[in-house]
Amino acid sequence: MLKKRIIPCLDVDRGRVVKGVNFVDLIDAGDPVEQAKIYNSEGADELCFLDITASSDDRETLFEVVKKTAENCFIPLTVGGGVRTIDDISRLLHHGADKVSINTAAVENIDLVAKAAKKYGSSTIVIAVDAKKNGDKSWNIFTHGGRKPTDIDALEYCIEVANLGAGEILLTSMDRDGTKIGFDNELLSTVSSSIDIPVIASGGVGNLEHFVEGVLKGGASALLAASIFHFGEYSIKDVKTYLAEQNIAVRI
């Protein structure tokens, strides 16, 4: 049976982890490569780096981080943040990313989705969607790291990018992000039941039960979390053991 994937996400700023794990035995807690290695050995199914470096001059550091991670961690690595062009995608893949996640650039230039999927294969292209509730079963998407509202309907947008060849949707609830009250399972199930491609749940996970709900109520194929792992509240193994106890197939 296909397993539900658990994906830890690291925010990377100028090549350094922001809000990293407080592992005591870590030589350099700010080194994304060191953190990735730990997640890798703990049984993470994939890794995700979100580059939040503001200045494009400083973005070169990311490539080195991706390269070193790929040399050490033999599980899929998704990299996103500031990806704007086919050339950005190409450089990330060349440095060892397995998938590239695109957010704002896909909204501003929807052709990029089809072009990228055609050139590198659908499975390489993840479309990251930041969605905020604006009514009953209705969500709008935001761009620029959640700072800029749009009047684009989240569900319609997800259907469109799926048709254009996106391989996966990384769906973040802006209402839930950072709240620790659970994923927005209504958003997840609305999108997931309307498209064929996998949906990765993101935003709001605060305890083990939330992971279960993301699968059973949200219909997510994969579950992404950041702070719950970083602050050491739960390990990847804790999450997988709990999911397995609830009869959800995971890779142990």
Partner: peptide, 10 residues
């Protein structure tokens, strides 16, 4: 069943 078949499988 989602397509692509993506993830870890036995």
């Amino acid at each position: 069943y989602k397509i692509p078949h993506m993830g870890w499988n036995e």
